[in-house]
């Protein structure tokens, strides 16, 4: 198993929001990826964006600039 570390996690209301963020983040060049939403956040299903903690501020800027919707941004050791 990969060692756990502090990560920036973004959750969404819908899969469409997740796909929109993935598309935008990849275009800009973020290194994160889509993961199943961690159970620490919700036991329900869904997708989340996982990225390095250093990327948090830039991700927020990008989401605001591009008016991308999301549910929550949390920092989590996973």
């Amino acid at each position: 198993m990969r060692p756990k570390e502090l990560q920036c996690i973004i959750t969404f209301h819908t899969t469409t929001e997740a796909m929109q963020l993935e598309q935008a983040a990849k275009t800009v060049g973020f290194g994160g990826r889509i993961i199943p939403v961690p159970r620490e956040i919700t036991a329900g299903c869904g997708l989340a964006w996982r990225d390095s903690i250093d990327a948090r501020a830039a991700l927020i800027d990008m989401m605001m600039e591009q008016k991308l919707s999301y549910d929550k941004i949390v920092e989590l050791i996973i």
Binding site: F12, T14, G44, C45, L47
Partner: peptide, 8 residues
């Protein structure tokens, strides 16, 4: 089902 928030 939508794949999201299944306990709702």
């Amino acid at each position: 089902g939508t794949g999201v928030d299944s306990f709702s």
